[in-house]
């Protein structure tokens, strides 16, 4: 049953339209929300949390309407904003304990869970120093910790890998995956980096200028395509001619030949053609899709 549902959700600002009749269904798991900067990702999260009212349309989380049942939703949701939001003069422990209490945890439970959560996100000794002296990676972890500390049923992470170096980015992505796989908490992650969402999401929603471009499971997106890429060391034209004669559709792409992969026999035909010409075979691979093609496709359609 879907955890998040929106129906014709629209948000208009005086200058722009942030969301344009967006209709999506999000199932439990890791959901990636992809779009260029300014595509409306943060706006969607803010509307779901009740921080910002929609211009029209409906949205619900856990089946509860975001406008009428806002407080109930907010009890079960964790939010990690994109912008800096940490005070500089308190320690991570103090801050997360305070935020846990603001989420409704009693004082001792708040302290206990803070200690646990900070350990889970990977903050050890640093947690007692003031946040002002932290690196970006540590600050992102604190932000994540305050979103998790009250054991929400869903967390919404807005650009969690912003400002992190490659190692930090990998660690954050692994942590996000763990949140679903080990902790059982649904995650809604936004990013403008398509590659990283491919790695960790079960389901991807692509937004462009506030409108839905595509919403499907990651495996659908990145399934192997039905194309075979062949690259030979010489005599590319001769090989292409042989294959065409054998009945395959061959397209030339620079040095490479792209064949439609109908069945396993195609591989035998390629082997034979290459051997007949006496040339070396450099590449023989199945081409996979990337999420970026979604943007390409639709721009081509337009």
């Amino acid at each position: 049953m879907p955890v998040i549902q929106t129906e014709e959700l629209t948000k208009r600002f005086p200058a722009t339209t942030a969301l344009d009749r967006l209709t999506i269904d999000v199932e439990p798991g890791v959901v990636g929300l992809v779009g260029a900067n300014g595509a409306g990702k943060s706006t969607l999260i803010k509307i779901l949390l009740g921080l910002s009212p929609a211009t029209s349309g409906r949205a619900s989380v856990f089946g509860l309407d975001v406008i009428k049942d806002g407080p109930e939703i907010r009890e079960r949701v964790g939010y990690m904003p994109e912008h800096d939001c940490l005070p500089a003069d308190v320690s991570a422990t103090e801050f997360v304990v305070h935020m846990a209490r603001m989420s409704g945890l009693p004082a001792d439970a708040a302290r206990e869970r803070t200690a646990d959560t900070l350990r889970h996100v990977g903050l050890y000794e640093e947690r007692y120093r003031p946040i002002g002296g932290y690196s970006t990676g540590m600050k992102q972890r604190v932000k994540l910790a305050q979103a998790l500390v009250h054991d929400p049923e869903i967390v919404m992470l807005d650009e969690p890998t912003n400002g992190l170096d490659p190692v930090g980015r990998d660690e954050m992505l692994a942590l996000i995956r763990r949140i679903w796989v080990e902790f059982g908490i649904t995650v809604l992650v936004t990013s403008h980096m398509l590659g990283e969402l491919e790695r960790i999401s079960d389901h991807v929603v692509v937004i462009d200028a506030g409108a839905l471009l595509r919403s499907s499971s990651t495996s659908d997106f990145t399934r192997t395509s039905q194309f075979l890429v062949v690259e030979v060391s010489a005599e590319t034209d001769a090989v292409a001619a042989t294959l065409t004669e054998a009945g395959l559709t061959v397209k030339r792409d620079g040095h490479q030949l792209v064949l439609s992969l109908d069945d396993d026999e195609t591989y035998d035909l390629v082997r034979d053609a290459v051997a007949a010409q006496g040339v070396g075979l450099i590449r023989l691979e199945q081409r996979r899709h990337h999420i970026s093609e979604v943007f390409g496709e639709d721009q081509a359609d337009v």
Binding site: R74, V77, Y79, C85, P87, S103, Q146
Partner: peptide, 13 residues
């Protein structure tokens, strides 16, 4: 420090 959204995304009006 823009901590206010963290408060309002919690069950606090």
């Amino acid at each position: 420090f823009r901590t206010v959204p963290l408060y309002f995304s919690r069950p606090l009006e």
